[in-house]
Write a protein that binds this DNA or RNA. Structure first.
Lengths: 334, 334
DNA sequence: GTGAAAGCGCTAACAA
DNA sequence: TTGTTAGCGCTTTCAC
């Protein structure tokens, strides 16, 4: 069965194809009567406009590309969920690519651009300068989500990573911890660097330095091993800050189930993100909540606001969720 | 800067536009020399074919639509990850929609079809007969993932839900459990019905019946409450089968942290899916593993195999992962 | 208020 | 081996 086009509708009503197009676009010049007839015929025939043809003509696809580095980190499904829903409400569609391990944005972005997506959201480690130029030349909007670039040459939406990490460090120190360690994610990500820097900076302010720092690769297993390495060190930490919740869960399980330690009595663990399992009683993780909904909204605003120039780095505040995995005393007024 | 088209490449080389098109499609009739020149010019100018225009002409977009009911169930991110990667390898793209709570496939599918996706994968509760007809008329392939229809009118890929659930029941009964209960997901899904039926059937075979059955809505919180309701019943279960891991985690936390029970000493909990947290020491959940990779591969085969007709219901075996959350004795030879 | 016609960037049939 | 031409299904001028 041949697909029904606007020409079929036109023929059925006895008007020209362009009139159909106008009527369905609710053009003010078309008479009420004609519109009604066309709408009826369209419904009867089961006509729906071909977005591909429309896109070719208007040079606008209403598709947004999303390049995700690690969907398997439980932080991201919520992002994805909100993103598709908000886009759908705006009458837009999402094209998704998950970057396989060992690949970069550069490897997958071009295939997405061939589909002429109107904008691209990237939640990945790095964006090469080559790709940045490419996007700029095409005038394809980009927003980095949960990532940023030092030189502000690209839009980005992040949590206030530094500030939040400073708060974590301060609260831990004020509560009597002195041997602090950190489990990082991937050193080539801005989130890693900012959280690491903020945490360490606050330590120095108190005349302390890290008793250990390990890389967990933003995975549960990676952090599990990292925590064990930390606990084998000369100076055993009394608190570990994991820059992502999924790693905090790994660290927690490592010290509890493998080393038989009590949390928070023997050691405090703090995460970042506030993924669903963080609030489950089995973990009861103290962590920094990222305001996902706000971050997604801001991302889409940056993507579609026509006079968003020059690119900007949006930062939204995180919120410390005090739960049971860290021995924290009441905050000190400042 | 205007986007560079095949016409620009043609002009640069001094050939016709169609020659460019052929050269880039590696048409055998074009001379080596011309091809080389065209490829060079294309690279120099940064030309990449416009997939939208190509799609309009070929009536084939190489896009697959994926409609996901609950991305927030930790079972699905792995599916998504594999799906995008396998598609990308095939040179295809994925268009994703997450169905918001309170909406149905019918509400989102049409907007996807306007983009002329070549096929649709659905992991949702129900597919109305109206939509089924629509898809059939358009000759748009559909595969239900982790869902099936009784009448086999649509392709589907599922785990052997019944068989696996029967095995769970048998193992529990053979290990001495007598008061079995179940926490279901959503009664309007095939997975719910099949797992429920298999489990109950095996019980009856042993002259037992469920001491309780509750609905957990496929969420952690829902199952947490459901478990508490079960334990308030007249006959308290000594084993609970949760038809999805995310619910098993909720049930586990409920009986452990809220009721202070020991697992598996006081009660056995078994799940279904084998999501990552299931194997974490904090849960150590006995569950049925769904072979996601195989399921995704089969799904894409069904979608693209040209002579896949009539529709078929593919079933792949699950695998019982025996861990610590259920008191199971060694399997009895049959 | 409506129609005719051009054209978005490509593929593919037909010519040469 | 290459060029010419006709669309794919739409939007959007320009006429009337």
């Amino acid at each position: 069965m041949k697909r029904v086009t606007s020409v079929d509708v036109a023929r059925a009503v006895g008007v020209s194809q362009s009139t159909v197009s106008r009527a369905l676009a609710d053009d003010s010049r078309i008479s009420k009567e004609t519109k009604r007839k066309i709408q009826k015929a369209a419904a009867d025939l089961g006509y729906t406009p071909n977005e591909i043809a429309r896109s070719l003509q208007t040079n606008k696809t209403n598709m947004v590309g999303l390049i995700m580095a690690d969907i398997l980190n439980p932080f991201y499904p919520a992002v994805l969920d909100l993103m598709t829903q908000q886009l759908h409400q705006m009458g837009k569609q999402l094209m998704l690519i998950s970057v396989p391990a060992g690949f970069e944005v550069d490897d997958v972005l071009p295939s997405m651009l061939q589909y002429q997506v109107d904008g691209v959201v990237i939640t990945s480690a790095v964006l090469s300068s080559h790709m940045r130029d490419l996007l700029q030349n095409r005038r394809t909007r980009v927003v980095l989500f949960n990532r940023s670039l030092e030189d502000f040459s690209v839009n980005s939406v992040c949590c206030e990573n530094r500030a939040a990490s400073i708060e974590v460090a301060r609260r831990l120190i004020n509560s009597g911890h002195r041997r602090l360690a950190i489990i990082g994610g991937r050193p080539d990500t801005s989130t890693h660097r900012e959280r690491y820097a903020g945490f360490e900076e606050e330590l120095r302010l108190h005349g302390l330095e890290l008793v250990g720092d390990e890389i967990g690769g933003n995975t549960y297993d990676g952090a599990y091993e990292a925590a064990l390495r930390l606990m084998k060190g000369r100076r055993k930490p009394d608190a570990i800050f994991c820059i992502a919740d999924v790693m905090a869960l790994g660290a927690l399980d490592a010290v509890r189930s493998k080393l038989g330690m009590k949390v928070p009595d023997d050691i405090s663990i703090v995460g970042f993100d506030d993924i669903p399992p963080a609030s489950w009683p089995a973990y009861d993780l103290t962590t920094v909540r990222q305001p996902i909904r706000a971050m997604v909204s801001r991302t889409l605003s940056l993507l579609f606001d026509p006079d968003n120039f020059p690119p900007m780095a949006v930062q939204v505040p995180g919120k410390l969720m005090v739960r049971g995995s860290a021995r924290l005393s009441a905050p000190v007024a400042t």
